[in-house]
């Protein structure tokens, strides 16, 4: 029998992560990842998604880090298919919030991906939020308000109907979407565990 090891506990990213995780030319280290996921070979409609992160008082969270993980426009996660043609598209982005708590990602709109038991999931971004005061990563998703497939999404179906809207970005313009993330309080964003 294999002895299961206990996992290493999570700790906060703290307020001073930027010079390692999001240096953006301000510090010595180069950027491994950024808020721009678009490569010249990325398949899918180019989009921009933006929003703010707000705390329980509705104040902007100015020292948060967001990560997104997503499929390409044809619903393929990088690395999951050996024959994936668009190998430069990494599907992973990272950014910090600015002084207004604002974040922006430039990416391609993901396609539908397989869900449990033969279902299909509506296009979505998988989102991780880290910050001072967040002891373990908060996990949420961003869906797109102009997708009819949301109605049949097996994950959205698990969310009480009156809270689903907290996960669905509003189309504001051609290729532009907006969604605020509320950590706590009224219209609190739905966070997941898996």
């Amino acid at each position: 029998m294999t002895q299961r090891l206990g996992i290493t506990p999570s700790q906060t990213v703290g307020p001073f992560f930027a010079y390692a995780l999001t240096p953006r030319g301000r510090y010595a280290l180069s950027d491994l990842v950024s808020n721009n996921l678009v490569t010249d070979d990325a398949v899918g409609q180019r989009i921009r998604i933006e929003g703010r992160i707000l705390d329980g008082d509705g104040e902007p969270v100015t020292d948060a880090m967001l990560e997104i993980w997503q499929a390409d426009g044809e619903g393929r996660y990088p690395g999951s298919e050996p024959t994936l043609g668009n190998t430069r598209f990494r599907g992973f982005g990272r950014t910090e919030c600015d002084a207004d708590g604002r974040f922006v990602f430039e990416t391609v709109k993901p396609g539908p991906v397989p869900g449990p038991e033969g279902t299909m999931q509506a296009p979505h971004l998988n989102v991780g939020i880290f910050a001072r005061g967040i002891l373990r990563r908060l996990f949420t998703r961003i869906y797109f308000g102009d997708e009819a497939a949301n109605a049949g999404d097996p994950i959205l179906a698990l969310v009480p109907a009156d809270r689903r809207g907290t996960l669905i970005a509003r189309p504001v313009d051609a290729g532009r979407y907006a969604l605020d993330i509320r950590l706590q309080g009224q219209d609190e964003t739905v966070f997941f565990e898996a």
Binding site: V113, G115, I155, E188, F191
Partner: peptide, 16 residues
């Protein structure tokens, strides 16, 4: 002020 007050929603582990 930063911890969610509502319970986390448990979801199945999908390809995502």
């Amino acid at each position: 002020k930063r911890a969610p007050s509502r319970p986390l929603v448990i979801i199945p582990q999908t390809l995502s």
